[in-house]
């Protein structure tokens, strides 16, 4: 029985180092990945609005890149064709920008997507109250739970927005190829297109993390006694 008497009141301060509860980072990544895989369908729903919004962003950005490539040839015929296909080009313009209307749609779609993520993640937290409460009963600190949720959202964000950005970019390329032919591919700056796809992915990751922030804090603050709850 001697060894279980660790709780001397005078030992409280000196034992502090031994008394740390830990969750190594790699272990949290491990748990986060498992959690996503087991709840694949749920993760898919959380991510789907992100995929759509990011692919739309990537589609318009890569589209602009291709249009800029076409403009840089200086050929009036291509310029006319671009104007016909909906780009607002004034005579003095040497590159295309996104029209205010387009920017507005992009911002709106991203906003809707964040709201969707917050909603889906809040539902996920309520569904997982028992798991969260149990982990707390086993000694998890608030920040372990916070970290798990952020990691899950980060991984989901990376995969979801990566896929969305690539699909959206590819769609833009196909779209221009059908309308303008090989010239749209040969004049394209691939670095610029790569940056656009990468940028869209990054935006998606940030949105995913922003969206999970509040739900993750709700989860982290959940009381361990929740684990005991029995539905009558």
């Amino acid at each position: 029985m001697q060894n279980s008497t660790i709780f001397h009141s005078d030992g409280l301060e000196s034992d502090k180092i031994d008394r740390l509860v830990v969750l190594p980072f790699m272990k949290s990544v491990d748990i986060a990945i498992k959690s996503i895989r087991v709840r694949f369908f749920r993760s898919l729903i959380t991510t789907i609005s992100l995929v759509l919004a990011v692919s739309f962003l990537s589609f318009t950005r890569v589209g602009s890149d291709v249009a800029n490539g076409l403009l840089s040839t200086g050929e009036p015929a291509l310029r006319q064709a671009l104007i016909r296909s909906g780009y607002d080009l004034r005579p003095e313009d040497v590159s295309v920008g996104n029209s205010p209307k387009q920017q507005w749609i992009i911002v709106l779609s991203l906003l809707v997507c964040v709201v969707g993520i917050v909603n889906a993640q809040l539902m996920a937290v309520t569904e997982r109250f028992r798991e969260i409460g149990t982990m707390k009963c086993l000694g998890a600190l608030d920040r372990f739970i916070l970290r798990l949720f952020l990691l899950e959202a980060g991984i989901q964000g990376l995969i979801g927005s990566g896929a969305g950005a690539i699909v959206g970019g590819a769609f833009a390329l196909v779209n221009f190829f059908i309308r303008f032919g090989t010239v749209s591919i040969t004049t394209l700056s691939w670095t610029q297109a790569g940056l656009s796809v990468g940028g869209a992915t990054l935006v998606g990751c940030v949105l995913s993390l922003v969206g999970v922030m509040y739900p993750a804090m709700v989860a982290a603050r959940m009381q361990p006694v929740e684990a005991m709850r029995v539905e009558q």
Binding site: I6, L20, V21, V38, M135, A140
Partner: peptide
Amino acid sequence: ELAWLRCRKIGYIFQTFNIIQV
């Protein structure tokens, strides 16, 4: 210290088992 107590000093068993599903 509370987390430490829950982790090291007390073991909990629940009516609903509460095995972490994942």
